[in-house]
Design a protein around this nucleic acid. Structure first.
Lengths: 346, 346
DNA sequence: CTGAAAGCGCTAACAG
DNA sequence: CTGTTAGCGCTTTCAG
């Protein structure tokens, strides 16, 4: 395939990419010395190290990652499994994880499941042999699905969802505290009849946020009517549907917590389309604290998660698991309330 | 490291993951037969194929991608280099490319440059040995930077930016046509003094959009004052800064094209902060057609690019380059105007 | 400190 | 149709 037109020097064209052997020959040393000189893995005399470096530079040598990996067992790559990059929450996660991976000299294999559990499983199976470890933002977290992977020796950190699996790490926000915070705030802001736009029943986080919300309301002498809690997808359209169902009940409703900012934004739009004024007629609070929560009109009050912190903590746990440092743990990240226009009446 | 507690069967624990040799032994055939049975690469008798498949399933065999790649030269991965996942335009691109890669059985190595040309170069250098090909959304596209990679035999498609490099593919939108469309529309919508929020001078796309805009205005008997064109970054904050500078000139201004939806959204916010009513006092048109352009208030009129089409076309070009089918070409994608509230006066 | 040689797990010639 | 053998490019014993 590689054909170097006659007459052209073509420094490295012959057998395609430059191999370590080429560098060694050019430097007049053995392959192993060349290897050691480049990796610094074992001591090599200064003059030789110079020569090898020079030759490598001159020939434009780049180590073949594949061969290196096959030999050492280190893949120099981690997998990041998420449901949807298009959701700003995950986009922010990806951004931070990618940054961490880059700093650590690793590359990032991105797996977008589109909320399909089978696809998620397929990705994970593949990552077992192609990544050093996995950061999993699961769409259907379950012990059954994760355990086999861990037993196969795949370092794995369960992110965002409070599922604890032996041998795997877990990092998640304090969802219940967030739910309580939102409840207290909605009450304090003047709401008296509440609704909750919740998430898929398969997600533990949705349950925790709900429990926290119920408890918070109870602490203020209110309660959440069971049918004032609707389970919809963690998306903008889910939020639209959620508020629609809440409003369709034909009960009073003036304080709503959405389990996700995207849901809250959807709720904001749908409420506007139906002539409900936010915050005058209806208070809406989100959960996540994505950048866009500050770019809606009205701006969105929300329970702020430490998104970058989750990504960074997850990465660090994974890195230390890959390095073999001790047993992974469970980290719960604090949340805080950010009050903006959607819950602030004049 | 792998210690199987005495007494536990541990089907595959011994030497870690199951290798092809294990499957072959278990099925009572040679490694090559096992290989051929699994890959279907060369004919194997039906009964043997059965036995091998059964053994593989029983032992839970998964082919080692690394070894496979080292041997075949196919990496089963493509690289996607973008400036910022957090920007919805790129998030949409990532989403589609990931989908295409998945369908083709490839994994996606995501590289986020953060608009840093050096980082971009470093990623590309690494991808040469670890990916089958690269889709490049460059932050500083230049022949000098891309050519060496192509010469090293890296299949590469230049996306979004109209830079043509021999041996590389190119896919980009018809930026000039988009600029013209926007100009005509702003004139027709009643604007008389124009401004352009442009992008970094290093980006050919910015230049083309500008030229199209100028030409479109000229065709309607207007012109763009040279200092009514400000070059800022392709981001929300860039847009804020852009409109600020445009307004600071203290000249009339009632029709603005932003070269990017994110800029346009920033401009929308900044204009509102400064008491300029859109669309009553000022018409603003964006460029890209990201999902969020429909989620601002007012909603954003914009020049719609075929974002998914760009991603898909880029992927297909890359796939055929990897497969060795002929020479790559240049594809220019059509754009269209989407009129929404930000340019629609009552 | 340096070199020769043995593989990592897999596929692709080569023989049978 | 099946088995044996030789590597892909690299690191890492093992001798010198």
């Amino acid at each position: 395939m590689v054909k170097s037109p006659a007459g052209v020097p073509a420094p490295d064209d012959p057998s395609g990419p430059v191999r370590l052997a080429d560098v060694a020959r050019h430097a007049g040393v053995s392959v192993s010395t060349a290897s050691n000189a480049l990796t610094g893995n074992r001591a090599v005399s200064a003059p030789l190290i110079e020569r090898v470096l020079a030759s490598a530079a001159e020939l434009g040598y780049r180590r073949n990652e594949l061969a290196h990996s096959l030999r050492t067992g280190r893949r120099h790559a981690i997998g990041l499994v998420i449901p949807d990059v298009t959701n700003p929450f995950f986009a922010e996660i990806v951004s931070v994880v990618e940054e961490c991976a880059h700093e650590a000299g690793l590359s990032l294999t991105l797996c977008n499941t589109g909320f399909d559990p089978e696809r998620e499983a397929a990705y994970l199976a593949r990552l077992v042999t192609s990544a050093d470890g996995v950061l999993l933002f699961s769409t259907a977290p379950s012990e059954r699905t994760v355990r086999p992977l861990v037993e196969m020796g795949l370092p794995l950190v369960m992110c965002d969802e409070p599922l604890v699996v032996a041998g795997a790490g877990t990092v998640h926000s304090d969802n219940a505290a967030g739910g309580r915070l939102a409840a207290h705030h909605l009450v304090d802001a003047g709401a008296t009849s509440f609704g909750l736009i919740s998430g898929p029943a398969t997600l533990p986080s949705a349950g925790e946020r709900r429990r926290g919300f119920e408890q918070g309301l109870a602490e203020r002498g209110h309660r959440l009517d069971p049918d004032a809690c609707v389970a919809v997808s963690y998306s903008l359209d889910g939020g639209r549907e959620g508020i629609r169902r809440l409003l369709a009940r034909d009960c009073p409703l003036d304080g709503v917590l959405a389990s996700t900012d995207m849901q809250a934004i959807g709720a904001l739009f749908e409420a506007a389309d139906r002539g409900r004024k936010v915050p005058d007629d209806l208070l809406i609070c989100g959960f996540d604290g994505i950048g866009w929560s500050d770019r809606t009109r009205p701006t969105l009050s929300t329970v702020q998660q430490d998104i970058a912190g989750m990504a960074r903590t997850g990465f660090e746990m994974l890195a230390s698991m890959v390095a073999g440092d001790g047993q992974p743990g469970v980290r719960t990240l604090p949340v805080s309330l950010v009050v903006r226009e959607s819950t602030s009446r004049a």
